[in-house]
Design a protein around this nucleic acid. Structure first.
Lengths: 361, 361
DNA sequence: AGGACTATTGAATCCTCCA
DNA sequence: GTGGAGGATTCAATAGTCC
């Protein structure tokens, strides 16, 4: 039995390498496996620029069966090297995450949470044919139902302004300075994850000194954050280019000192935006309700999609408000009123405030 | 073959009943299947009050196999009754959603989006051993990859203050007035969904008059919202008590009578087509008129047959627009402008809209 | 220096009709 | 089924340029 090569990025076949490792030696696994995107043709933005899709060979599979076989194999190998109280994280999208989740349940992993990474700046849906794909899903699971896993509840609560950390995490994509570029100035890895995401998973589920394994190391984000947080790490990747990239990245990170362990993102809270349509959806205002202007000079009817329609105009509450007044702009929230009972009308803004209060309960 | 019993809540075994229905008769299915929650023992709040868990008999399964069999059966039956261009929604949590997602992919459903319902007021995690479970997952899928499904993009955008609707929906739980109580004052159904959630799925994926099927009707929220929005509905449930509850609920909802209110914003794609040549024929644009590109860099002359000719290219407004820019494609309606008077130029699209309005009179 | 404007880009299953 | 043509479609953030 070999000793474990710690704090390294290793070029190898992940499954083979994990099988060569001593069993029950790892505290946490973070895995970002291929998503099996199945992209067909090319995609262009409305300005005719081409979207750089993930068409790498490592994301190509003949069918679901082929993908499922790979999934079962790496999950089984990872489970073997995991300590009895260890946990595993996997990230994916709707293309693959259901298959991964099913496979890990079948193998005996015990799901603790699914967590959604809500992207604050996702790529839009350019053709307007679906909802903007604005999130990815992480599954957090223990080796077995009886695992006494690590969960740093207080640390998570502290990270979240003293409120329990929830299963939805709003974080930005990895862009700008943080995104590693190649010699050509283009992104060096197609799917580099933000450090903030790894930061939260590692702080939540490990203690300093724990050993973290990433079988799909890629640009090395998991190992980089592990090193910054004083955890031990092993990154494995098949691709020699990515291994070289990650080794360079890791070499530039100084050994963890206390001061550095507390930087990074804090979630910012702000009053949630409430689209007018939300009031309609939530029944505070039924489709067909009549709105009136302050002096009762104009009226408009609420439609099911949150637009309103007056005698001559239709559109948002702001657009129609501006149009009926012949004004360049209008705050529909304060302009339009709705009769709460026979006598008195209240501005829409009152309903919005009511909704915010109720939703927060 | 039986005719479809519309606008009813039916007490039946869902799978058997769907098998008895004519195939390809339903526009949308919304399903909230049993979650297979594996609650070990009871769950108590810190103040020792008991949390009413989901421990009804219909939620117990021997193992994953039994759950998977049920899932495959109801999905197959639902797929059979779906029209070729129909879509299906399923909601679930991490306990079951991965199995449901895998099963529907295996059957041939084509996933369009996964959507996370982010709960603005979730139940806290009382033990502090996991992240607050603050979301549920919906899968939206078409009957097949080639389905020409309905997605009311403009209506969704209108509901979200003129930004694309994203895959994360923040909505409150079903509480307060909306939550149906039994004679004992307790909640009448353990997993009643908020109407706002159904509202958004139905407005997104159906048109008024479409037929919506819910094979796990429960408290009848799907049918209730369908009725309010002027859609046809069928709800099926095994449990006579829930059927009675839902029938009473539906009886109290008036028919949707205001056609204007339930109508959503009409997509541009559905506007009647107007060939460019029609404008020339109808004298809105004389042969010989000069068109200019936005920055006046390119010009082209209108010819009698509705083609245009620039310095180097001739063809349709789209073809020449693309050619002069060296772009793969171009929407000539918005690219080319025509000088209405000496000062200002307007896009051809304005003339088209004018023509459509006049033609409709 | 600072504000205004432009260009770029991100795990994407991204059009539809008609001949 | 396939090919060609009409024509519909984007949000947030960062970096760079111009004035």
């Amino acid at each position: 039995m070999k000793s474990i090569p710690e704090n390294q990025i290793i070029r190898a076949d992940s499954i083979e390498f994990m099988r060569s490792m001593p069993e029950e030696s790892v505290d946490m696994v973070f895995a970002d496996p291929p998503y099996n995107l199945q992209l067909a043709g090319e995609l262009y933005r409305p300005n005719n620029s081409r979207v750089a899709g993930v068409d790498d060979a490592w994301d190509q599979f003949d069918d679901f069966d082929a993908y499922d076989r790979l999934t079962r194999d790496w999950l089984a190998a990872a489970r073997r090297v995991l300590k009895p109280n260890g946990t595993l994280w996997v990230i994916g999208s709707y293309h693959n995450i259901f298959r991964v989740g099913t496979a890990l349940q079948n193998i005996g992993f015990w799901i603790l949470n699914d967590v959604v990474w809500v992207k604050s700046n996702p790529m839009p849906n350019f053709k307007g044919r679906r909802f903007t794909n604005a999130h990815e899903t992480l599954i957090w699971c223990a080796k077995s139902q009886k695992s006494k896993y690590t969960f740093n509840y207080e640390a998570m609560k502290a990270l979240n302004d003293d409120l329990q950390m929830r299963s939805d995490w709003t974080l930005p994509l990895c862009t700008g300075e943080e995104r590693i570029k190649g010699a050509d100035g283009k992104k060096a890895h197609p799917t580099q994850k933000p450090e903030s995401l790894l930061y939260r998973t590692i702080v939540a589920a490990t203690d300093p000194g724990d050993l973290i394994l990433d079988p799909f190391s890629g640009s090395g984000t998991t190992s980089a954050v592990a090193k910054k947080l004083g955890r031990r790490y092993i990154g494995i990747d098949q691709d020699a280019g990515y291994v070289k990239l990650a080794r360079k990245r890791l070499a530039e990170i100084p050994e963890a000192s206390d001061a550095e362990a507390i930087q990074h993102t804090r979630p910012k809270r702000k009053e949630p935006r409430v689209p007018f349509g939300t009031l309609v959806e939530n029944g505070l205002l039924a489709p067909g309700t009549m709105l009136t202007s302050p002096c009762r000079r104009h009226t408009a009817k609420v439609r099911a999609d949150g637009t309103i329609i007056s005698a001559d105009h239709k559109g948002s509450i702001h657009q129609v408000g501006a149009a009926v007044q012949g004004a360049p702009s209008c705050n529909g929230w304060t302009y339009w009123q709705v009769a709460s009972d026979a006598r008195k009308a209240v501005p829409l803004d009152v309903l919005r405030q009511k909704f915010r209060t109720e939703a927060a309960l």
